[in-house]
């Protein structure tokens, strides 16, 4: 066994981990800088100086605690958890082009939220989130059933089926909302935005954060699932149970984000793909990256949403949609050219 494959001459084996470390540090620094910036950007004057000058009872300090800190925390939680939802869904489906909004999960959850608006208008946000999560779970299940008949190798067909499925559900939602004269309020709250996030109105996002922790604990199992059912069975893993846990993670994150910030498209798709290019698909290693990069991306988008038309805000979903769609297209074309 002396003449087994010699290492290829081009890429040396060592430098890659060091380069990764640097990119990791960069993401961390960027996250910190953007988070701090997010605290001090807005219509009202909140700056470190004004906070210090006003003291603990000043207007600036009040705004910081009641609005800016909640908003920043909410943005970070949404970015991190949506990325993870995408990552886990991609492992379950074994397809890089899925995320809650390309699989019908978001649309099902929206339908669930509408149902609470119609039947239980006075329901607390937690209950609303629970119903949305239940619908999201149903959506994940429906999608996984439908996708089973699509060949695994048909990479682009899978999200296409999901988008169509979502389209059908969204049509039902729109129809019902239209008939009940709820269209406007539906649009209002489903449009992704952090403008209304305040103390006491974002805390459910910690549940999404909790799901990220669950995903991290079960990370290896998701990696193995990502290699296929046969692989998982060979390694003694209960495939169905892991899939069930993954479905709950995806549905709960989708619902929590939906009821607090609205629909934020593409993020769950783009972030895991970018991370995959940098450090690969080992879920344990990818999770901090996906969470960090997701938070960075959405923090940047949210800042942009606040700054572009100051003193007005444009909806975050518009910016994330535009940025995400371009990145998505790039990934699609890039992958396509490599696969064929």
């Amino acid at each position: 066994m002396t003449a087994l494959d010699r290492p290829l001459t081009s890429t040396p084996a060592l430098p890659r981990p060091t380069r990764r470390t640097w990119v990791g540090v960069l993401v961390g620094v960027l996250l910190a800088v953007l988070a701090v910036t997010s605290l001090f950007v807005g219509v009202s004057d909140v700056s470190p100086v004004s906070v210090l000058r006003g003291g603990a009872d000043g207007d600036a300090a009040f705004l910081l605690v009641a609005s800016r800190i909640p908003r920043t925390v909410a943005v970070v939680l949404v970015g991190a958890s949506l990325g993870i939802a995408g990552l886990i869904l991609q492992m379950l489906v074994r397809n890089k082009f899925v995320e809650p909004s390309t699989t019908g999960v978001t649309e099902f959850a929206t339908l669930g939220a509408l149902v609470t608006m119609v039947f239980f208008p006075g329901m607390a946000v937690l209950g609303k989130m629970g119903v949305a999560a239940a619908f999201g779970l149903l959506g994940t299940w429906v999608f996984l059933r439908v996708v089973r008949v699509v060949p695994v190798r048909q990479l682009v067909l899978v999200p296409l089926v999901g988008i169509m499925l979502g389209g059908v559900v969204a049509a039902v939602t729109t129809f019902v909302a239209y008939r009940l004269d709820l269209l406007q309020s539906l649009q209002q709250w489903s449009q992704g935005s952090f403008a209304t996030v305040m103390q006491g109105r974002y805390e459910f996002l910690w549940i999404a954060g909790l799901m990220v922790v669950v995903a991290w604990v079960a990370a290896d199992r998701f990696s193995v699932i990502g290699m296929g059912e046969e692989f998982a069975t060979n390694l003694g893993l209960d495939h169905r149970r892991v899939v069930a846990v993954g479905m709950v993670i995806v549905a709960v994150i989708t619902a929590a984000v939906l009821v607090t910030a609205g629909i934020v498209p593409f993020l769950g798709l783009v972030v895991p793909n970018v991370v995959s290019l940098i450090i690969g698909d080992n879920v344990r290693r990818a999770i901090p990256w996906v969470a960090g990069l997701g938070a960075v991306l959405i923090l940047a988008c949210d800042l942009l949403a606040r700054v572009v038309r100051m003193p007005y805000e444009i909806p975050l979903s518009v910016i994330v949609g535009a940025v995400g769609a371009v990145l998505f297209l790039w990934l699609l074309l890039r992958r396509g050219s490599r696969a064929h």
């Binding site: 074994r94 190798r153 296929g228």
Partner: peptide
């Protein structure tokens, strides 16, 4: 074994220890 996942050789061998 058309494993779509981008895993390193080390990752893969490590998963062999999963049982």
């Amino acid at each position: 074994n058309h494993v779509a996942a981008r895993l390193t050789v080390h990752d893969l061998v490590e998963f062999g220890r999963f049982p």
